Simulated scan of single mutants.
Amino acid sequence: MIRVRQLEVLCAVIDLGTTSGAAEALSVSQPAVSNMIRHIEDIVGFPLFKREKGRLVPTPEALHIAQEAQHLFSQQKRVDRIINQLRGGTVGQLNVIATPSVGYSLLPRLITEFTRPRPRVQLSIEMGSVDEIIQRLISGRADLGFSITMPRHTALSVRPMATGRMVCLCPEGHELAHARSVNVLDLNHVRHISYGSGTPLGQMIDEVYRQEGLERRYFCEVRHTATALQMVAAGAGVALVDNFAMLSGPPPGTVMREVEPPLPVTLHGVTSNLFPTSHVAMQFQSFVREALSDPGQGSAME
């Protein structure tokens, strides 16, 4: 069987007409090229060249083989190009699932920036709870997850992407909107949208009240930051939301205020240990970490 390297030598000799010219082009010795041609002729069982006036003239059979070889070379270049694109994360499938506060605000902007130089990346984006993130990752239906709450499962790898904080979102004109910062304890005295004590965010806020010997009170319980954000935007009350949910700024008709004491939150990137993480998913995870470490990204990190 003729190998690709042998075909390269054959085509070089046909193109240049001499073994010395082919040797120089291929960065090998002239005897090596001559030996290769003889070896190819032994394999195929017929002559490939005639010598005329110091040049090697290919036979019709040699020209036919060389023509077919060009298709092989083109395919090889295409495969190499695809491998380089995959290595660079410019093609592939990226299946992402995120909690709503991340998925509705942060993710669209970052994915748009990531895919702009990678137009051949195929995307699938889902929103879900932490439990849904876990299930999609361990079943192989998602490559990468993002969540403020840390998913806990032995089959998952969880990496911190960025550190943020909880802020108080108020309707414009609300009494708390006039303050430079809002004490978390003051939320008990106004219409307050918050998270149940069974949720990680609710437990974090409960701890502030517990340390003061108080019980947290609120009129509306939600599970996701995104829901709280929409309730505030509708004028229903105030709420603590993670600042990742407002990368592009507060919704119209609302204002954002810092809270005391500070309530730090972490954005986590999650992958499955049960399936290989695609290169494009690893590229996007690194992109998110770098983008959110850049002060130029705006309100999410200021």
Rank of each mutant, 00 (worst) to 15 (best):
I2L: 14
C11E: 03
D15G: 06
E24C: 07
S27V: 04
Q30W: 04
P31E: 11
E41N: 07
D42G: 12
G45F: 13
F46H: 11
P47Q: 05
P47I: 01
F49E: 03
F49Y: 12
F49I: 03
E52Y: 05
G54I: 05
P58V: 07
E61L: 15
A66W: 06
Q70C: 09
K77R: 11
R78S: 13
V79D: 04
D80T: 12
N84V: 14
G88D: 00
N95V: 00
A98P: 02
T99W: 12
P100E: 07
T112L: 11
T115Q: 02
R116L: 11
R118S: 02
P119K: 11
R120T: 06
L123G: 00
S124W: 12
I125F: 10
M127C: 04
M127W: 08
D131K: 02
D131W: 07
E132N: 14
I134A: 10
I134K: 14
G140M: 03
A142F: 12
A142E: 08
D143M: 09
D143K: 12
I148Y: 10
I148D: 03
P151L: 14
L156F: 09
M161S: 07
A162Q: 06
V167Q: 03
V167L: 08
L169F: 01
A177R: 04
A177K: 00
V182Q: 03
L185N: 04
L185F: 05
D186A: 11
H189Q: 13
G196V: 06
P200Q: 10
G202C: 08
E207H: 15
R210C: 04
L214Y: 10
E221A: 15
V222C: 10
R223W: 08
H224Y: 13
A226F: 06
A226I: 02
T227C: 05
A228W: 04
V232M: 05
A233I: 09
A239K: 08
A239P: 05
F244N: 05
L247G: 06
S248H: 13
P252F: 08
T254H: 05
V259D: 06
L263K: 12
L263E: 11
T266H: 14
G269E: 07
N273L: 15
N273W: 13
L274W: 14
V280Q: 03
V280P: 00
F284L: 11
Q285E: 12
L292V: 02
Q297N: 10
S299L: 15
